[in-house]
Write a protein that binds this DNA or RNA. Structure first.
Lengths: 119, 119
DNA sequence: ACGGTCCGTGAACGGGATGTGAACACTCGT
DNA sequence: ACGAGTGTTCACATCCCGTTCACGGACCGT
């Protein structure tokens, strides 16, 4: 047993079922996420991004894979949309749960979703 | 059973499959390592170095062999990259598992990967 | 003890990847 | 037509990575 990899209590991974990881619950059908009991309202893209990451909680999701999952096409070189949206989602999550970080950067690879106390 | 040589639960040694040795799990494809359940983020080089060592867990890997495995060329005399990277990886591993040492120096030969409690 | 070699470790450097705030355009409801 | 919300792009700031240097300690043979 390692660490993560199974803290996800999702219904159907692919579609609209709620996703739960630790103190985070995502309800794609409502455009809503609950973090530490607090409601966080997210836009469509933000929700899709967060879902794509949370569905692989504990694993690093590659940049291009993330992009094709959320944006639905190949990642053009120079496109910074991912960075911008990761930033937006981070802001909202950390505003709801101060002292915790959720989306971790793995330079050259991608991002990893995992609720962890800040260093 | 004595000590070494078979604690590696790797899939295919050569490529991206996860490598597991004792409390250390390495996922080359994700740029991620798990130590004692903690996620350790490693750079590409660091990951490659750790993988090269862990794939031969319990055995001393020669300096030049290590270099050609990771850097992909002959080791030039005076090149200290290996030392620097061993140091970086040691730091990160021991930060994740205090009291344990993982990479052992064999002067004049090379390095040996083996999780052991500190002296 | 001596000198030479090997290794540990911190720091500096240039290039590249990512973080971040702002401007811009587009859609939608009113 | 207007404003609010959203998605994209840009520009600049910041951080990280890989390499190399510098210094010092550890180990070796003599």
């Amino acid at each position: 047993m390692s660490t993560e990899t199974r803290a996800v209590d999702a219904g159907s991974p692919g579609d609209g079922g709620p996703i739960r990881v630790a103190q985070v619950e995502i309800r794609p059908s409502e455009g809503l996420a609950l973090v530490a009991g607090r409601a966080v309202s997210l836009s469509v893209r933000e929700l899709e991004l967060l879902s794509a990451l949370a569905l692989r909680s504990g694993h690093v999701v590659a940049r291009d894979e993330l992009f094709s999952n959320v944006w639905g096409g190949p990642l053009r070189s120079g496109d910074r949309s991912i960075d911008v949206y990761v930033h937006k989602v981070r802001q909202k999550l950390e505003a709801a749960a101060p002292g915790w970080s959720f989306i971790h950067t793995h330079i050259g690879f991608g991002y990893r979703f995992a609720p962890e106390p800040m260093a």
